[in-house]
Design a protein around this nucleic acid. Sequence first.
DNA 1: CGTGAAAGGGTTCACTC
DNA 2: GAGTGAACCCTTTCACG
Lengths: 157, 157
Amino acid sequence: MEHDSIDLAILSALQADGRMSNAALAERVGLSPSACSRRLDNLEKSGTIRGYHARVSNRALGYSLTVIVHISLSGQFQKTLREFEEAIKRCPNVLVCYLMSGEYDYVLRVAAKDLADYERIHRDWLSALPHVVKINSSFALREIIDRPNVGIDPAIV
Amino acid sequence: MEHDSIDLAILSALQADGRMSNAALAERVGLSPSACSRRLDNLEKSGTIRGYHARVSNRALGYSLTVIVHISLSGQFQKTLREFEEAIKRCPNVLVCYLMSGEYDYVLRVAAKDLADYERIHRDWLSALPHVVKINSSFALREIIDRPNVGIDPAIV
DNA sequence: CGTGAAAGGGTTCACTC
DNA sequence: GAGTGAACCCTTTCACG
């Protein structure tokens, strides 16, 4: 799907404030409410907008530990990967998981309340995942950047 | 701040649907609209809810490449870290950046349109960051999980 | 894509328990 | 803290130009 500068302006505005009303959005991007609503519909239906979410502070919920985990599996057969992926999706503490090229097979970002909590997650979840042969944990000391999307160039907005 | 089960239910609902109206939310968690609105106010003011955002598909905007980058600096002096961090915050393609314990100093998640785009980012941004002595790029083959927050246990909701 | 109007809901009080 | 009721404002969604 192609996006013109008005679409990008809509996306940018909704990225900044996901609860903005259609009327406010329309005014912001210089469109009538009806036209804006039609564009928004398209952006949602085409999958460009994947959803709207409150951003909850992990820290406020007690999750102050971020761990980057590298995992290797015993082989890269389709079946092996599939079984591993189905299992890991069930762990609520795994925020991000990517299948990677290179030395390790998967990179995870895990949220834990504290070290004891991470030990539990490591024992009950990560170690229990099928086909795992190597787990490497690195702890985050500080969060420098955490944004959900590539910033849309304000110049076009 | 303490959170009871109703607070958690509110957070969970708003995490799933950030555009839910206060009226719908109130019904969902079994509260009157006014009581629900008061709680929501507190959650926002206390920083438990950090904001509401549309989740835009990076892929739909042309960012189909995810790269995990490990970076080492020449020393870990306060000044070195600070200068590096200030510089990296200006790169719009860096979605996530953590200061880490262990072998590497920083872990980044970078979004690029394609390999050529990543080469540009690597050359113009990453290599140009101050104090960098080692850059290690790994490319994501597939996204398995990508959620913004720890799932709130549906049992309490 | 814009306009206009109708219809329906949502938010926010003050007040009460 | 929570519920009720009502006023007011706003939003969405048409059909039409």
